[in-house]
Design a protein around this nucleic acid. Structure first.
Lengths: 209, 209
DNA sequence: TAGATTGTTAATCGATTAACAATC
DNA sequence: TAGATTGTTAATCGATTAACAATC
C-alpha cells in the first residue's frame, strides 16, 4: 500500500487553507501564474515554506515559471476536500450559532449548515434563518438522512461535552468547538477549538503596563 | 535593566490562558491545591509542559505539595493582565459583531466592549445591545476618552485593512481579527487571527473519502 | 524520615528556513 | 543559451518531553 501523505503537520494544513483563499482571490482577478516569492509577498509566509508545504502533496509548479493559479487552486481544493459540498450540523442556536448560520463565507466555501440543534425548549421548533431548530437528541436520527460528518459546537461550556458525544453518535467525525473546554472524543474524531477569551487573553498579555 | 520574561513562546501564552480557565473552575469548586499531574489530567497538557510554561514567569509551586489554586489563578491573571477591566473597541456590527458584543464570557473575563463601529449608514446611529453604533471614522476621536488598547475586527475582508489602520490610529495596539486577510500593522501592534473557514478546511482535510 | 512533587537542565522531536542541483 | 524558479536536502531554530537533583 502506498501512503502518499503520511502525516502532514497541522500548521501546513492551516497554511494550505490560506494559500487557497489567496489563490481564489487571484483567480478572480484573472492572474494566471504566481511564484512562491509572489506568494510570500501576499501572505507573509516564507517562499521556502510554501514550496515545502506543497511538497507534502506532490509537485505543482514548473521550475523557471511558477504555478498556474487556477490549477493550483483546484488541486488544493481537492486536497482539503473543499471541492465538494459538505453538510454540517450546528449545535447551539444562540447568538454565535446564529452568526455562524448566517455567515455567507462558510456556504461559499462549500460548508452547508443543514440542521440546527439546541436544548432550550423555547428555541426548539422555532427558526434560525432558513433552518428549523431541533432538539439535540434528534441529531442521530436526523443525521441518518443528512449524513453530515462535520459538527459545530456553539453551546455553553457546561453542555459541550454531552453535545460532542451526541454529535459523535450521530456520525460526526470532525468538530469545530467554540466552547472553552477540552473535549474528550474517540480516536478518529478531529477537533479544532476556537476560544475567544483565550485569544483576547493572549492579546492582553502583549499590552504595555 | 532586568528582563524577567525575555520572550515567551506564543503556545505558552495560549496554554497559560487555558490553565487560568481551569484554575478558575477549580477555585469555584473550592479545590485548594493541585499538582502538575492533576493539571495534565484535566487539560491534556503534559505535566512537564505545564511546569516549563510557568517557569517563564517565576516559581509558583512547592516541591512535594503542588500549587495553591487561588494563588496560582491570581498570579496568572496578573501575568496575562486580565486582572483589570480592559476596554475594547468593536469594529463591525453585523451578525458576528453582535454575537461577540452579546457574549457574556468576554465581559466576565474583564474584556468590556465599550464602543461599536460600522460603516453602514443604516446601522450607524442604531443600537447593538446596550451600545450605540458609531461611524468607524469616529473611532480615533472617541477613543481619546475611552482609551481602549484592544480592538476586534468583525467586518468583511475587503474592509479589514482600512479598519485596522483606523483602529491603530485610534491608539489600539492589539487586534483580534475575524476577517480572512493578513493585516499589515506597524511594529508593536499585536494581531491574532480567527478564521472560521480556515478551521473548517482543516477539519475537512481529516474527513475520510 | 520517606514520599511526593517541584523547577530546571538535557535530550528529543518537529517545524522553519536556507541552499542548491534540477529544469523549464 | 541565460535567467528564473522549482522541489528537496541539509542546517537551523524552537518547542516539547524526559529525567533528576533540590526540597517540602
Amino acid at each position: 500500500m502506498n501512503h502518499p501523505t503520511p502525516k502532514v503537520p497541522v500548521p501546513t494544513l492551516e497554511r494550505m487553507a490560506t494559500y487557497l483563499a489567496c489563490l481564489t482571490d487571484l483567480n478572480e482577478k484573472q492572474v494566471q501564474t504566481i511564484s512562491s516569492a509572489d506568494m510570500e509577498q501576499m501572505t507573509n509566509i516564507n517562499a521556502a515554506q510554501f514550496r515545502k508545504d506543497l511538497s507534502y502533496f506532490g509537485e505543482f509548479g514548473r521550475p523557471g515559471i511558477g504555478y498556474s493559479v487556477p490549477e493550483l487552486a483546484g488541486r488544493i481544493s481537492t486536497i482539503l476536500k473543499v471541492d465538494r459540498e459538505q453538510p454540517v450540523l450546528l449545535a447551539g442556536a444562540g447568538n454565535l450559532g446564529s452568526a455562524l448560520a448566517g455567515y455567507p463565507a462558510l456556504r461559499r466555501e462549500n460548508f452547508h449548515i443543514v440542521a440546527a440543534f439546541d436544548t432550550d425548549p423555547d428555541k426548539i421548533g422555532s427558526r434560525l434563518w432558513d433552518l428549523d431548530i431541533h432538539d439535540i437528541a434528534q441529531a442521530p436520527a436526523m443525521n441518518r438522512a443528512l449524513n453530515a460528518k462535520i459538527g459545530i459546537i456553539a453551546v455553553p461550556a457546561a453542555a459541550a461535552q454531552g453535545v460532542a458525544e451526541t454529535l459523535v453518535s450521530a456520525g460526526v467525525t470532525a468538530i469545530l468547538n467554540f466552547a472553552p473546554v477540552s473535549l474528550r472524543v474517540p480516536a478518529g474524531v478531529a477537533v479544532r477549538n476556537v476560544d475567544f477569551v483565550q485569544e483576547m487573553a493572549v492579546l492582553s498579555y502583549h499590552l504595555a503596563g
